[in-house]
Computed example of a mutant assay.
Amino acid sequence: MSGGFCSDEFAGVRQVFDEQLVSGAELGAALCVTVDGEPVLDLWGGHADPERATAWGADTLVNVFSVTKTMTALCALLLVEAGELEVDERVAHYWPEFAAAGKGGIEVRQLLAHTSGVSGWDRPIELTDIYDTESAAARLAAQAPWWEPGAASGYHALNYGHLIGELVRRITGRTLGRFFADELAGPLGADFHIGTGPEHADRIATLIPPEMPEFDLSTLDQDSVLVKTLTSPLLDIAETASAGWREAENGAVNGHGNARSVARVQSLIACGGELSGRRFLSPATIDLIFREQADGIDLALLTPLRFGIGYGLPRPQTFPHIPDGRVCWWAGYGGSMVVNDVDRRVTFAYTMNRMATGLIGSDRCDLYLKAVFDAVGQR
């Protein structure tokens, strides 16, 4: 059964969460919901390891994969708010080397919305090569786009943080992880890390890789955006337990946190840019998120996706449990997710260690989403 608390109106959500823990569908997980920036539900339970020797505690951390991208997007939006970054400006204005190989016209918004044409690295490249984020960003700057920038989205799976992080570094002189810690995690008291030091190792849950169907990637077009994005480099779940992976400041996929810290930071969006008496973002900056940049079959994931600037936007026909309206969201490989509902000032966050097979969302996450927004609708 779960630890933590929930208000009476969200008791049905706790029941669903407990059912998943008791049935064994979840190994270990955490769920948090905030309304007006304050937690109304903060639950955790299960185990942090496959041997079930360590209970999932209130401060257990886990790699949330692409939920990290929402933290990276927030860093960019902070620079927009400060007048130091313009989403309609060319990337090369801030990062001149990026203009190489026909990329001079690519705009910042296209990086943030996965439409830049630069969704991975030219081969050959190994996963460990991307730990040196400055060197890996330089490789991206030198290569040509894989499709016409702006024509479609192609999910920037592993390199989103290198691209946005290099802009942060060029503008501020700070690495992405340092900027995030200084400007967001620190001020908000959020236990979320982009670049996770060894002092946190004992709190990090072990990921259980998803059971994937047998599939021979060699049967696909090796020059397709899908194959190049997902194999250049290829993600190795076992490697994500290494110190090298954890300590790298990869703002696309290696953020470590829990549902509480994800909800804490992201509720900035749901609350219109102001949290705990401090204004981080203006309404005009929040509005940028909802400027649609792409809506259609994503070239890298072959899934219909709709992107604004920095976040996914609702697409009810594809993701029916994410509410429509001024809502922005994103999910991490294996099932973690965050949803910000600006209309109702609600943030939903879910983290877990038993990974589901889908690249976006999971059946378990759908159950929690439905229960949460059913309860929100009855308030």
Score class of each variant (00 low, 15 high):
V33G: 05
A137P: 08
G161F: 06
P124M: 05
F319N: 04
V118F: 02
W146N: 15
A92G: 00
G46L: 13
D42W: 06
S276P: 01
A141L: 10
D18R: 03
E148A: 10
A190K: 05
D202N: 10
H256E: 01
V87Y: 03
A349S: 01
W329H: 02
L207Y: 12
A205V: 07
S23D: 10
P323Y: 08
G12M: 09
A151H: 11
I106C: 00
A25P: 07
L61M: 03
F319D: 05
K103Y: 00
S261K: 00
D88H: 11
T351R: 05
L74W: 00
T240D: 14
A138G: 15
W146A: 15
H47I: 10
E97R: 00
V91L: 02
I208M: 05
I309T: 04
A144H: 04
D366R: 13
Y311A: 12
G102Q: 01
N340Q: 11
Q222L: 02
E89R: 12
M71T: 03
Y350C: 05
S267M: 12
G150H: 11
S232L: 07
R246M: 10
V168L: 02
G189A: 09
S242V: 09
D202W: 08
R123L: 14
W330H: 14
D236I: 15
C6H: 15
